[in-house]
Simulated scan of single mutants.
Amino acid sequence: MKCVKPLLLATTIAMSFNNFASDLDKVIDSSKKINQSAMKSQDKIDKIADSMQARLQQFKTLNKEIDGLEVYNQQITKQISNQIIEMDDLNTSMDQVSVIERQITPLMLRMITGLEQFIELDIPFLTQERTERINKLKSMMDKADITSSEKFRRILESYQVEVDYGRTIEAYTQLLTVDGMEREVDYLRIGRLDFIYLTRDGKKAGIWDKETQSFIALPDSNISQISKGLRIARKQLAPNMISLPVQATE
């Protein structure tokens, strides 16, 4: 009977230890759950932090883009303002062009008429070619697909051709009625000073007389100089002095 108390005590201690161990396991399990919960919370916090960082970076990037767009919009606004000014200037210019075009058409017609009259009064060299040039100008004026600037350019070009005739020497062959008979002659034009012909056989020569508006015969003494002038004009002979009669200009 004396051994019952120690045994009871040992049993009590064992039971208490087991209870303690069980409680300890529960505490450990609870601690693990808490740690796991804390880790999950930390993961969530880390993800939220990463998301916030990404959004912050995106926000900064958007701010930079907004700043760039503001600068771009300011520049575009300036360009639009300048374009509006240019459009106003262009509209004004177009109005002026319309006025000028209405004024320049009669001017071009007068220029063509003046050129035609000049050719009629001039010495009769290259008559067909020069007349055709005038006819082309007249026909051109009726065409709507040619701009006024191009028409004006062609008229000025024709004037320039006539100006150039006054400082060039030229020889060409054509038919002419001589002594009542149509014959082939060589024409020699020296600027607008002289317009001379020489028959192909080299026997007859004449010079255009502005007063009578016809050719008058030249003496045979001029034929050699005329022949020389024809060769110079055709670049068959080097330029040299020639002696020819000259009709006084008015």
Results as ranks from 00 to 15, higher is better:
I66P: 00
K2P: 09
N73A: 06
G229T: 03
L156A: 11
K60D: 15
D142V: 11
N35D: 14
K26P: 01
D50I: 08
R231M: 14
N18L: 15
I100Q: 05
L115S: 05
Q96A: 09
T77N: 11
D88G: 10
D164N: 11
I146R: 02
K136C: 01
Q57K: 13
Y159Q: 07
R189F: 04
A49T: 15
Q213R: 13
N63H: 09
S22N: 13
E170Y: 07
P106S: 02
L188T: 09
R167P: 01
G229K: 02
D50V: 11
I112K: 00
K60N: 15
G191T: 10
I123V: 15
I196Y: 05
S243W: 12
A54T: 14
K26M: 06
I190K: 11
T12M: 03
L56Y: 12
D209H: 09
P219C: 02
E120F: 02
D186N: 15
G180Y: 03
I190S: 05
E211N: 14
N222P: 00
D46A: 08
T168D: 04
F152M: 11
M94N: 02
A54V: 12
K151V: 07
E129R: 10
I66L: 14
D201N: 15
K5N: 07
T12N: 01
L193V: 07
F195A: 02
M52E: 09
R55L: 14
D142M: 05
K40G: 10
Y187L: 15
A171T: 10
R192H: 10
M111Q: 12
I76G: 01
S16D: 10
R102C: 04
I100S: 03
K138E: 09
V4H: 02
T249A: 12
N222D: 10
D95A: 07
D194R: 14
L218K: 08
R110N: 13
P124C: 09
L56G: 13
E162K: 09
N135R: 08
G180R: 00
R231T: 13
K235T: 06
I45Y: 12
I66M: 11
D122R: 01
F17I: 12
G191S: 06
A217S: 15
S41W: 04
I76R: 03
V71P: 01
R102K: 13
K151Q: 07
S16P: 00
K203R: 12
E211F: 05
D95R: 05
S51E: 05
L107G: 01
I207A: 09
S158Q: 04
E101R: 05
G166R: 11
G68I: 04
Q83M: 12
S149Y: 10
F20K: 09
K138P: 02
T127G: 01
I119L: 06
F59T: 13
D25P: 01
W208G: 07
L69V: 08
P239E: 08
L107M: 05
D220R: 11
Q58W: 07
N135G: 02
I84W: 00
K138H: 09
